[in-house]
Simulated assay, not measured.
Amino acid sequence: MDVLSSRVLLHPTDPQATTAFYRDTLGLAVYREFPGGTVFFLGGGFLEIVGRGQAGPTADMALWLQVRDLAATVAELRQRGVEPISGPKREPWGLDEAWIRDPDGTRIVLVEVPAEHPLRVDVREHT
């Protein structure tokens, strides 16, 4: 399989509220809009808000969003009315994390990768 692009699809119970949350509250840039949906940039991928869901989110799924400065991001989101459900804090695996929810309850982890974390190691130096 040769994957050329990818995106996460969310089917919210309230598409307008969810689209406004990702666009206005989180400040994600819009990649494209079409009748019935909006696609947002998510770093190396995309998030598509499309259609209308019935069941709501599952605890088995979460969005992982890496940010440059977790403390500043959380402070900015608090000013916009978003209170983290946990964090920010350094987790045992070495990442700084804070958790929030979108209007439907979809869990979102905001992650800062500290400079000394293995995810920041340039693997080309070790080959």
Rank of each mutant, 00 (worst) to 15 (best):
V111L: 10
L28C: 09
K89F: 08
R23N: 14
T18S: 15
V50F: 07
V67I: 05
R78Y: 03
T25E: 10
L70S: 01
F34M: 04
P92R: 01
R23L: 04
V3T: 07
V8W: 04
L70R: 00
L26Y: 14
L77P: 05
V74A: 10
P103K: 02
A75K: 12
D24F: 15
I49V: 15
W93C: 15
P88Y: 10
A115S: 02
P114V: 00
A29G: 15
Q54P: 02
E116A: 12
G37M: 06
G81S: 12
P114Q: 06
Y31V: 08
R23H: 15
V109W: 01
Y22T: 00
V82T: 01
P15D: 02
V121Y: 06
R107P: 00
G94E: 02
P88G: 10
A20S: 14
F34E: 09
L65P: 11
P114D: 03
D96G: 06
D104L: 11
L26E: 14
D2I: 15
A72V: 12
E33K: 05
V50E: 07
A75F: 02
D122Q: 07
S86I: 09
R124C: 07
R107M: 07
G87V: 04
A71W: 09
P35C: 03
S5A: 11
R107E: 13
R90E: 13
G36L: 04
E76C: 06
P88N: 01
I100M: 05
G36V: 08
